[in-house]
């Protein structure tokens, strides 16, 4: 499959990239791993006059997992995140989510920032950044960096808070406190994307009282969302079976128009989100599978 002709540039710094974006306007598109953009171009569902390859900008690929927050360059690949022992130790949810994306070839190229900027309603990363209440750092021409809360980032079907000419440069993740995390995903049998994906962060101590709950849901609605009702139902409560089950029932609260396609109807997606929401909550709370 052959895309329509386009130019290619590989800036070496973020500033060069921003300048090129500003100069090129609409037709200039950042290229990260190309795992979504290139298929779109090849199928000629979209076009670009010029691609700006972000892969040669070292600071965009960096992962710093030793401090708090953890800082991920937007062009860090899924595989680099999956493979990082430091990430696994500091934020196992990120490791788990990275490892569930597509297959290894996809993960070798696809990037965290590319996935978030693309905002596919069935992508995995959004669930994680929502659950962790990550901060997404964007930069535009000449402007200082702008921080966007993950929960403010996803605005609609494949649409985000990024302004034209803005680049996502960093994702900052606060180290979760003591407790547990889990990601449960039902893969669409062909694409591997999520039919329903639920990421859970539960912070709790020896008394099993939930200090903080974060729940991100993907694959179900036109945009990934934080399941606020679930979080509310858990925070300050003891994490026992009944509490988790009751909370899980709220995973899809407020979802009016669930996605529906050949692979799963809306009704089934809602059901799966509840079932896997409960499984994720149980895992994060350290309970045996039901």
């Amino acid at each position: 499959m052959i895309p329509a002709p386009f130019d290619y540039a590989a800036p070496r710094t973020i500033d060069q990239a921003l300048a090129a974006l500003a100069e090129g306007g609409e037709g200039t598109k950042p290229l990260a791993g190309g795992q979504s953009l290139i298929p779109v171009l090849k199928l000629r569902l979209g076009s670009a006059e010029r691609l700006l390859d972000l892969g040669r900008i070292p600071e965009l690929r960096a992962i710093r997992a030793d401090g708090d927050p953890l800082v991920f360059g937007a062009a860090a690949t899924h595989a680099a995140i999956e493979d990082s022992a430091a990430v696994r130790a500091a934020c196992p949810l990120f490791s788990e989510v990275a490892g569930r994306i597509g297959d290894r070839q996809i993960r070798n190229r696809g990037t965290l920032g590319g996935s978030l900027a693309h905002a596919d309603p069935a992508a995995d990363w959004p669930a994680a950044v929502l659950a962790l209440e990550a901060v997404l750092v964007a930069r535009g021409p000449g402007k200082v960096a702008r921080s966007i809360a993950a929960r403010e980032f996803f605005r609609g079907l494949m649409s985000t808070a990024l302004a034209p000419g803005e680049l996502l440069v960093e994702v900052r993740v606060r180290r979760p406190g003591a407790g547990g995390t889990a990601y449960q995903k039902v893969r669409q049998s062909a694409s591997g994307f999520a039919i329903a994906g639920v990421a859970v962060v539960l912070e709790y101590g020896a008394d099993r009282v939930c200090k903080r709950a974060g729940v991100g849901v993907t694959g179900v609605a036109d945009r990934p969302y934080a399941a606020l009702a679930v979080e509310k139902a858990l925070t300050g409560r003891r994490l026992d079976e009944a509490t988790l089950a009751a909370a899980a029932a709220l995973v899809v609260e407020g979802v009016k128009d669930p996605l529906s396609d050949l692979h799963a109807s809306g009704e089934y997606r809602l059901h799966l989100a509840r079932v896997h929401g409960e499984r994720a909550l149980r895992r994060a709370a350290g309970l045996a599978p039901a």
Binding site: L43, Q188, S189, A190, S191, L262, H263
Partner: peptide, 24 residues
């Protein structure tokens, strides 16, 4: 048995026209 089906919609469009929708 489990995954595959060439699906055409009522208008005759091939819905499972790529590996994103046709599961091997």
């Amino acid at each position: 048995a489990l995954f595959e089906e060439a699906v055409y919609d009522e208008g005759g469009q091939l819905v499972t026209g790529t590996f994103m929708d046709y599961a091997l």
